[in-house]
Design a protein around this nucleic acid. Structure first.
Lengths: 154, 154
DNA sequence: CCAGTCAGTTTGTGAAACAAACCGACTACG
DNA sequence: CGTAGTCGGTTTGTTTCACAAACTGACTGG
């Protein structure tokens, strides 16, 4: 029986509608980004993606279908009898590269295991990456709206 | 009773050990990146993060603890009796900004809802971002090892 | 004293992940 | 021509997890 009904006129939950949350709805589930990593690395078939990600078969199938529905990848039949398929990045999918690169960079910098999949660009010793404005090339240190009094002087 | 034991000498699963997977182990679970978004936006208390992300309370607690354990954020007591806490990004946590920015950019470009949290940098009309080498500033279009015969001429 | 805030913990339930087996269409081997 | 193997899944059963809602304890304010 209903007793106190606490939590009544209090803390209303208004999840921020934002493009970050939107993106995560599309590619934020477990395995999705690893699937995309494989596609970026040139692995295009079910069995390869399965082996390299370690995802359970049924989950992998579900992810491939939902990424396809989201327009991030495309399923192409490369033979009939028996029907066999390859998965290819769409242009939209390819534009997720900065996210993968960001994760890779962070992992390299902050995790002490670095078997690192191939990185292309080499201009000498690895100097890492930066996110810059595509217009003026200036570094973009700004998601945060000047909210960093945080160790302003430590 | 054990019948066929198919799947025996076949497809061995060797998940790629890579920094992307490593990063995802730390920040890849549901809600984690939204928690970080809030910290970047200056929201530092449990109730605020709860309301703005929409995460269930117990899950939020778990995420905060594991992100703390991973060294991405720090839990600071800002009063005793009753003990109250604030969550702050560590330097390592702040270095996840490119990932958030990447997700935000992608969402803005490919999802047709854009209530967009504030972006700081404005050098005129929004020209988007680019990931570049921190050494020479040259664009980095390379996770993929030249694996794109893919619409090479479309 | 009662209401409310804050930062959680506890409890119960339903959905999802997971591992392992199975399947159908085919090829390759001997 | 029968057996084994590949490929891309689906099915089944179990366990884990997320989730919502209620509850708690220490406190403030009226």
């Amino acid at each position: 029986m209903k007793q106190t009904d606490y939590d009544e006129g209090m803390t209303d939950v208004r999840p921020r509608a934002c493009p970050i949350a939107g993106s995560l709805d599309v590619i934020g589930e477990r395995w999705s980004l690893l699937v995309l990593r494989e596609l970026f690395l040139g692995v295009r078939r079910y069995a390869g993606i399965l082996a390299n990600t370690g995802a359970p078969r049924d989950v992998l199938t579900k992810r491939l279908r939902s990424l396809e529905a989201a327009g991030v990848l495309e399923r192409r039949r490369y033979q009939d009898r028996p029907p066999r398929f390859e998965y290819h990045l769409t242009p939209a999918g390819r534009e997720l590269e900065p996210v993968l690169v960001g994760l890779r960079e962070w992992g390299l910098r902050h995790l002490e295991d670095a078997p690192a999949p191939p990185s292309l660009h080499t201009c000498g010793p690895d100097s890492g990456t930066r996110v810059v404005c595509a217009g003026c090339g200036e570094p973009l240190d700004g998601l945060a709206a000047a909210s960093e009094e945080e160790q302003a002087l430590s």
